[in-house]
Structure formats: structure tokens, C-alpha cells
Simulated scan of single mutants.
Amino acid sequence: MVDEDQAFEYDVQLTRLPSDTLRQRYPHMTVRSTAAQTALRRRVDGPAELSALLVEIGTLGLTLTDVHRVASVEDGPAGAGLYELRVLGELGEPSLRYLKCTHYHVEKQALVRLTLVAGELHSFLQACTDCGAGLARVHRVGPPSVERPRPLVGSV
């Protein structure tokens, strides 16, 4: 169970930059833009196969921005599963054939990092959608790296 007053740091990917109104409402958030990317998906049968895929990506000179397992294989070896890897830019057909991955294009996005207590996250996400900045992904990073100032209860 999460304490209502416990703060966590979140990374929120938005389909566009947050509005000035949203930035004013949450002044402690940091915002940066990401470039367009290609998301590659491939099933691997363990850590050695994932390492080989990472070497193939490096051999092509691609900039890797994200790696995560989408689904694990229950009866397979440890680390086996479907992985998504994101690289900068839009890859051409020769590179995609070489990598033997399914893929999709990811448009330029905004990455927001902010610290919120449990009840604030829902309000923040609602405010994002209300201003037209669609949600692409939300990830709790962990406890805040720096404690943010707390308002004093009963202060004016």
C-alpha cells in the first residue's frame, strides 16, 4: 500500500509539448523534446541473443534510446521474450531487413519528468489530456532524487 503523502518521480511521454498553462500549474517539471524514432520488436531466446541484437544495432551506427521487454516467454530460458528497442531516426528497408525486426515509427514526443504524490498523478495526467498533449507512456522512476518543497498545512 502506498502512503498518500509519499512522493515519486515520474517520466511521462506526451505526444506534444505541454501547454504554458500546464507548465505554470506544475512549475517543478522538466520538459525535453525527443526526436523521431523507430521502434524495433524482436523475439529473443535469452541474454546472448539480446546481446547479439544490440551488437547488430551498434554495427549499423544507430543510436539506441530505449530497450525493454514487452512480453516474457514462460517456458523459455531466463531473459527470453519479445523485446522493443528504440533507435533515433526512421530506418530504411535495408536496415530493417538486416535486423529482422518488426517495426513502427514513433513521432517526435515530449518527455516530462516530475515529482508527485500518489493523488496528484491522476490530476496531472488528466490535465495533460485536457490540454491536448496525449499520453504515450507513464513510468515511475522511483523516489524523488531531490525532495521538493512541501506547502505548510494551514499556511496562508
Rank of each mutant, 00 (worst) to 15 (best):
R16G: 04
V153R: 15
L14F: 05
A80E: 10
P27D: 10
K100S: 11
Y10E: 11
L121S: 07
M29E: 01
S95A: 15
Y10S: 09
A110D: 03
L14A: 05
A136C: 14
Q126M: 05
S155H: 11
H139E: 12
A110I: 02
D75A: 11
R69W: 04
T21M: 05
V87S: 09
T21H: 10
D3V: 01
Q24E: 09
A39T: 14
V141H: 08
F124E: 08
A80W: 13
G89N: 05
V31R: 05
F124P: 11
G154V: 12
F8K: 03
V12M: 06
A127H: 12
C131V: 14
A78D: 12
L85C: 07
L54P: 00
L64H: 04
V156Y: 06
D3G: 03
E120R: 13
Y26M: 03
D45L: 05
V2H: 13
P77Q: 12
A48Q: 13
H139M: 07
P151V: 08
L125D: 02
G132E: 14
E93L: 06
A36H: 04
T59V: 08
S72I: 06
L121A: 08
T38Q: 02
A133R: 07
R137P: 00
L88R: 14
D3P: 00
L40D: 11
H122E: 12
P151E: 13
L96D: 12
S123K: 15
E56T: 07
T63S: 13
V87R: 06
H105R: 14
A136L: 13
T21K: 13
L99Q: 01
L50G: 03
L99N: 02
E120N: 02
G134R: 08
H139F: 10
Q24W: 00
F8I: 02
F8L: 12
S72T: 15
R150L: 10
P143I: 03
P27K: 04
E9M: 15
